[in-house]
């Protein structure tokens, strides 16, 4: 809580900056309209106008908040206009991709740690795979998988998986190798088999690494799901809201989808953080 005051100050400064920027960016339009109406604006009128436009360049925070309130609380969840519905679509793809990516990542890491050939051949390509901007080929993956007859949740989840397996591989390789020689020798003096060494020493000592990389993987997975929704023609999901908003100039809608995505990311990462605290506490590591 020591950090509460500084963080609060910074957040307040950001909101103030946002309001100021809204005045500055939307002023042109306000002046334009006033000129056509043949009136001149006083400063307070200008401010009031820039904070209440229909399609502002930058909506003021309270407009976004009102839009979020309207589209979450006041709409039915099943409605296509409900942000909760769209968030749910995005979240399901995120979670599926995250689970697939984590499983793949852990599997690859185990292979890399236990198999010298895999270590030498796969590891460089895992790193190289991330220099390919997968998000850029997302539309192709979606379209191609659609052509093969796979549509809906899975294509988006595959993109999420590709983004989220990398941090898990890197973290888990580090984690599974974290027991030092002394501990490994100790296992040997106990005549532990390979499986026992894995389950009782390597896996437990990799847990802190796993959770840290899972947080990164979750954030990456959400980005993948959002971008994966762009080329499907803006049907459903937060990415679709962004695209539709940008087509029709609905800036308030874009910002509300953006804030919703941010909240979703924060909630999912916080969830992993909670699991981390509970697990490590029970293991006596935190």
């Amino acid at each position: 809580m020591r950090n509460f005051l500084p963080v609060f100050t910074v957040l307040m400064a950001l909101v103030a900056l946002w309001y100021a920027a809204a005045v500055w960016l939307n002023a042109d339009w306000a002046y334009d309209r006033a000129q056509r109406a043949g009136t001149t604006l006083t400063f307070s009128e200008l401010v009031a106008d820039t904070w209440a436009q229909d399609k502002p360049k930058l909506p003021a925070p309270h407009q976004v908040a009102a839009e979020i309130w309207n589209t979450t609380v006041e709409k039915k969840i099943t409605s296509k206009r409900s942000l909760i519905f769209h968030s749910w679509v995005t979240m399901s793809a995120t979670l599926l991709g995250f689970v697939l990516g984590t499983v793949l990542g852990i599997g690859l890491a185990i292979g890399i740690v236990y198999n010298r050939v895999m270590d030498m051949s796969v590891m460089p390509w895992v790193i190289a795979s991330q220099t390919i901007p997968i998000l850029a080929i997302a539309p192709m993956i979606i379209v191609v998988l659609n052509a093969v007859g796979i549509s809906g949740l899975l294509p988006k989840a595959i993109i999420s998986m590709y983004l989220s397996f990398f941090p898990v591989v890197v973290g888990m390789v580090k984690g599974l190798r974290s027991p030092d020689q002394m501990q490994l020798d100790q296992m040997r003096t106990w005549n532990a088999s390979g499986a026992q060494t894995f389950w009782r020493l390597r896996l437990p000592s990799s847990m802190p690494y796993l959770f840290t990389s899972m947080k990164i993987a979750m954030a990456a997975s959400l980005v993948g799901a959002i971008v994966g929704e762009l080329p499907t023609g803006a049907v459903a999901g937060l990415g679709a809201r962004l695209l539709a908003g940008s087509y029709y100039g609905q800036t308030i809608q874009i910002w509300s989808a953006l804030i919703m995505a941010a909240a979703l990311a924060a909630a999912l990462v916080a969830l992993i953080g909670l699991a981390q605290r509970i697990t490590l506490k029970r293991m006596g590591m935190a």
């Binding site: 960016l25 940008s246 990311a265």
Partner: peptide
């Protein structure tokens, strides 16, 4: 840094 910043893209393209 953990947020899906890429979502800012349509706004910035508009600006």
């Amino acid at each position: 840094a953990a947020l899906p910043i890429i979502g800012m893209a349509p706004i910035l393209v508009m600006w």
